[in-house]
């Protein structure tokens, strides 16, 4: 287990390093960042001044290592637009996004795991068909459009929920649903196939031959094994959700990191965008790292070699 953990940790670190390089390099792809910063109307002299001020004239690798060194110390530079530290800015916005993400993944799991289990117990039954129908529909529903439709119906027509802001828990209901429904079909399908597979194994037959009661067979013997891959998927989906929060937060004016991303992208605020990509990626890496550990812990075949 220790060897496994160390191996995964080394891999995670290497991925993080690569991601940091890409997120740094991405923004140097196109034109001169100095021009982007100064704006289209700036004079050549202004651009040159900015270039020197921010060190854009140095070789890109030098700039990268400089940036990386400071990033490692928690300094992601200063926002062009907000004129504050990027780290402070992100730190201030992250809790909202985290709350949203946790709510959304919880919502998705609570919706999809029971549905997947129910569908697997009776394949081709009404429940199974309904679950399949919902998952096919869910995957085809563009989240931004779904969000707008919810606003039109729940907030405006029925006046049930507030449309924007993040003051009360009610403000989180619609964003949670919008962010969570998109992850639900994948989790539902994996739970279903996992359960179906496990239910046809020899050890489930053994459990039944032992005379164990159906709930024990189902939840102790079957679900325990079927849930292992679902944990990984849920972690991956959680990571995707944070990335997807940009759409949801923008629509519901939820002042989280996703909204910050939209603000900084539309304002060419390069350091903030870089910082956000890095933070989101790192979060994903940490998440999948822990998911792997949980997986190994859940599965004795990996835990005890």
């Amino acid at each position: 287990m220790l060897y496994y953990t160390l191996k995964r940790l080394a891999l995670a670190a290497l991925v993080a390093l690569t991601v940091s390089f890409i997120s740094f390099g991405l923004l140097y792809l196109s034109s001169d960042p100095a021009i982007a910063m100064a704006g289209e109307t700036a004079s050549d002299a202004d651009i040159e001044a900015i270039r020197q001020l921010y060190g854009f004239d140095r070789p890109i690798l030098v700039q990268y290592f400089d940036w990386l060194q400071r990033a490692a110390a928690g300094d992601l530079g200063k926002s062009y637009y907000f004129r504050t530290d990027v780290s402070a800015l992100i730190g201030e916005r992250l809790p909202t996004t985290m709350t949203l993400g946790v709510c959304a993944i919880t919502f998705a799991i609570l919706l999809s795991v029971p549905l997947g289990v129910a569908a697997a117990i009776r394949p081709n039954s009404l429940v199974d068909r309904i679950a399949l129908f919902l998952s096919v529909m869910g995957q085809a529903l563009p989240s931004f459009w779904f969000a707008l439709m919810l606003i039109v119906f729940l907030s405006v027509s029925l006046r049930l929920l507030p449309t924007s802001g993040s003051d009360t828990w009610l403000h989180f209901v619609m964003p949670t649903v919008v962010l969570g429904y998109y992850a639900a079909p994948a989790i539902m399908r994996l739970t279903r196939t996992g359960m179906l597979e496990v239910l046809s194994t020899d050890y489930i037959r053994t459990a039944r031959a032992k005379g164990l009661r159906p709930p024990v067979v189902l939840f102790k013997h079957a679900l325990r094994n079927a849930i292992i891959p679902v944990v990984s998927l849920a972690a991956v989906q959680f990571g995707f959700m944070l990335g997807g929060s940009i759409v949801v937060e923008t629509i519901f004016a939820l002042h989280g990191a996703g909204f910050l991303a939209w603000e900084s992208i539309t304002r060419n605020d390069l350091p903030t965008v870089q910082g956000l990509i890095l933070v989101f990626s790192l979060f994903y890496i940490v998440l999948t790292f822990f998911a792997d550990l949980i997986n190994a812990w859940l599965d004795p075949r990996i835990r005890i070699k």
Binding site: T206, L212, R213, N225, P300
Partner: peptide, 22 residues
């Protein structure tokens, strides 16, 4: 189910997969 595993037991062909790995 009260009879199974109690008055009547069964042993299967595949010992490798007949016990729950978890």
């Amino acid at each position: 189910s009260n009879v199974r595993g109690n008055k009547m037991g069964m042993i299967f062909q595949e010992p490798m997969s007949s016990l729950n790995p978890s």
